[in-house]
Amino acid sequence: MDNDLIEFHTTAFDTMEARLAASLLPDEDREELVRTLLVPFEAFDKSIDFIRRRHRPNPNGGHSRGRVVGLLGEIRSGKSWACMHYAGRFPMRVVDGNKKFPVVYVPVPGSPTVKSVTTLLQKRSGAHSVTYHNADDAKDASVERLQRAEAELVMFDDAQFMLFHRDAHHFFDLFKRIVDTNRMNVMLIGDKSIYDYMDGNGHLRKRGGFAKHYVPPIIKNGAAFGNLVRSIDKRLPFRTPSVLGEQHVINDLWKISGGVIGLIMNLVADAAIMAIADGSDTLGLKHLQLEADDRFQEDTYKYFRVPMNSGETVDG
């Protein structure tokens, strides 16, 4: 598995030539650009900076170790993509024939078990196969695998599923074993309930005081939100700019998302793939309308319709 991470698309198509070249790529490649589109914005940059400080606070020194830290926030606020993007900066390397993984990213299943989590942990740090006998052996094998991989930072994404679960005592023990090596840090990523768990758990909280960063949504439909949406448009693989730059579209994206980036990208990505499929030169209102109508049938408000006083056409 080798820490199977997304290779993100972050490059803006700032010229007509760049847009044209992107629009002429095979549909499958264009769809992949849409699915992996990532716009660095203020909350994202702050998350990356926090992760960096909790991993390698001094670029000319060593890595931090023996700490449990947290990256917390609402669902779809961009935590996972920040973590995967950061982990991608530290790819697997081979030293004397051995695979080394400085950053190990583990996406926690919705119903985690000791077997499922330790199997993921070992495979994402270079194990070719995993044999499970019992919980204690699996935890021992996971820590040994991380040490052989010379892991420096181990990320558990959606860690709240581990902490409020019948196997929570095993996962507590796993975290403790990892940080007790004093060779790496553990980062717990997820919603704010993780703080509640840590606040009541002195054994882990005292391992570094649980330094944490909260990832907020954008707080208002203002210039920052409009710039974010327009930055998404600059990275879409279409011949011409899309309707994302229009203020009424930005307003509706705000109503839908409340500033949560993941909710915006869910809708825009599906609409953009629809536009690629029907051969459109760009992402239009009709694509956004169909995606919104499929999602929000219960709403009396109809999203992405042209305001009556705008004088624009409605066929997008």
Results as ranks from 00 to 15, higher is better:
F50N: 12
T10Y: 09
R89T: 14
I218F: 09
D45E: 14
T15G: 03
Q247V: 07
K234Y: 04
T10V: 15
E150M: 08
K286E: 15
N201F: 05
Y132Q: 01
G311I: 07
I218L: 15
R295A: 14
G202S: 12
H9Q: 15
I256N: 05
S142K: 02
S111V: 12
V103D: 00
I178E: 00
D167C: 05
Q122E: 09
S257D: 10
R53H: 08
R239P: 00
K220H: 12
D2F: 14
A43F: 08
A87M: 08
F175E: 03
V94H: 04
A21Y: 01
A151E: 03
I189C: 13
T300W: 00
R19L: 04
D27Y: 03
A21I: 01
V103P: 00
N182W: 09
R52P: 00
D270H: 12
V68N: 00
T36H: 13
R35W: 08
G66M: 13
D29H: 07
L20Y: 11
P241V: 10
G66I: 06
R76Y: 13
Y132S: 00
A138D: 01
Q247H: 10
G110Y: 08
A151L: 06
N60W: 13
H9G: 08
D191W: 04
R56H: 12
D281G: 15
M1S: 15
N185D: 14
V114C: 02
H133S: 11
S310I: 02
F101Y: 15
T118M: 06
K192Y: 06
E246K: 01
F156K: 11
S193E: 09
F171S: 03
R148D: 10
R93P: 03
A21R: 11
S231L: 05
S23D: 02
N309A: 06
F13Q: 00
D199T: 06
K115G: 04
M16Y: 05
G208R: 03
V114L: 09
A135I: 03
V306D: 00
I250A: 01
L20K: 13
P91F: 12
S142P: 01
L121D: 02
D281C: 07
R54C: 07
Y132D: 01
A12H: 02
A277W: 06
V39Q: 06
A151N: 04
T181F: 04
G126Q: 07
S257M: 10
K139C: 07
R177H: 10
L204G: 00
G200T: 09
V130H: 01
A135L: 02
L33Q: 15
D294A: 15
A149L: 06
F90N: 12
G226Q: 09
T131H: 12
I51E: 02
L5T: 11
F156I: 10
F8I: 13
G258R: 04
H133L: 12
T300V: 10
H169R: 14
T36M: 06
A127V: 01
D294C: 11
I178H: 03
G316Q: 10
A269I: 09
I6K: 14
H55C: 05
Q247M: 11
F41W: 14
S111T: 14
L71P: 07
F101K: 04
I219Q: 09
F304E: 03
F225I: 12
Y214F: 13
D14P: 00
E144R: 14
V39R: 01
D2E: 15
G97E: 10
D14G: 05
R183C: 04
F225K: 09
S310D: 11
L244Y: 04
K192E: 11
Q289K: 15
I75Q: 09
G97A: 11
D299W: 04
D196R: 13
